[in-house]
């Protein structure tokens, strides 16, 4: 490979990687915020993302509703679904059993139910796309070509993440959430309503997933199995340390770029392997991730 070509590959790989990476970052954020506060890795996050995409598709394309109704409606549905799952399913599971594995399996159950429901509608068979709200004309940045849609995805993701950081770090409700994550008992003592706080966190995580779905659906096409993209988000979360919000975001970008560079400079076949190798390598060499502090080990 000559240098000229390698440079083009590098620029394009990074540019495209940042765009898909911004969506992985959003999903990773949704996973990490739940993990930080509930200690549960939500294996249904991908299906929540997928189902939210289909809600939007259904309202917008099949019911022909105006977009200013569709967007908030989708976010509300995602919020309610996740908050109610937390309230009525997980609270009950937590009441019956203490171990992590039970909560994890309950989220796996949710993922099957959502997938089955979407397939029942009959819209999940053919790949579909949520119409892009931004034109897909290309522009050149350096020697990399990106579309306006790409820029919009990247920009929206960054704004949403920034807004979430602000909420999590500088508002009263955000402080309550962080308190719940650090020490639920103490948080309760100082007057935090644990149940409501958890519902709020899960709901918000659903909203972030729904935003990710709205952003990327015009780009990667929707099928009932699109939730498998969550693996890339898990990889991103691991790379970022799994309990660090900024880590999750940087992890998302890293995974997006690594995916492309592996494809360009190693083999297209290895693209799907990249996130798993990233998880393994990070966990073995630096289990706390690139951004995690010291690794907290829970002793029973």
């Amino acid at each position: 490979m000559d240098l000229q070509l390698a440079l083009i590959f590098l620029q394009q790989g990074i540019a495209s990687g940042l765009v898909s990476g911004s969506v992985y970052a959003l999903l990773a954020l949704a996973i990490v915020v739940i993990f930080k506060t509930s200690d549960v890795p939500n294996f249904a996050q991908g299906e929540v993302f997928m189902a939210a995409g289909y809600v939007a598709l259904y309202l917008f394309v099949f019911q022909q509703m105006p977009i200013w109704v569709v967007l908030p409606a989708t976010l509300v549905v995602a919020f309610l679904a996740m908050a109610l799952f937390r309230r009525f399913v997980l609270d009950q599971v937590a009441k019956s059993a203490k171990d992590l594995v039970y909560l994890v399996i309950a989220t796996l159950g949710l993922s099957y139910v959502l997938k089955g429901l979407v397939r029942r509608t009959g819209f999940g068979d053919t790949p579909r796309s949520f119409p892009a709200l931004v034109p897909t004309d290309s522009i050149m940045i350096g020697q990399a070509s990106v579309t306006l849609l790409d820029l919009a995805i990247f920009g929206t993701a960054v704004v949403v993440m920034a807004a979430f950081f602000w909420m999590f770090n500088y508002t009263k409700i955000g402080r309550a959430m962080r308190a719940v994550g650090m020490n639920p008992k103490a948080a309760q003592l100082v007057g935090v309503d644990l149940r409501r706080c958890h519902m709020l966190i899960w709901g918000l995580s659903g909203v972030i997933s729904a935003i990710a779905a709205l952003l990327i659906s015009p780009k990667i096409l929707m099928t009932a199995d699109m939730g498998s993209i969550v693996m890339l988000a898990f990889a991103a979360a691991i790379v970022g340390g799994f309990s660090s919000l900024p880590g999750a975001v940087v992890g998302g970008f890293v995974i997006g770029i690594v995916e492309n560079l592996v494809g360009l400079f190693i083999s297209s076949r290895a693209i799907v392997l990249a996130p798993f190798l990233a998880i393994l390598i990070v966990l073995v060499l630096r289990p706390q991730g690139l951004f995690g502090g010291k690794l907290t080990i829970k002793k029973v």
């Binding site: 083009i8 590959f9 495209s16 498998s228 494809g263 297209s268 076949r269 693209i271």
Partner: peptide
């Protein structure tokens, strides 16, 4: 020839290589 996994999400890499 470029062989890709059916679950691929970002096709930038295989496309660039073929265009080259």
């Amino acid at each position: 020839v470029e062989s890709v996994n059916p679950n691929i999400n970002d096709v930038t890499a295989p496309f660039l290589k073929l265009r080259a």
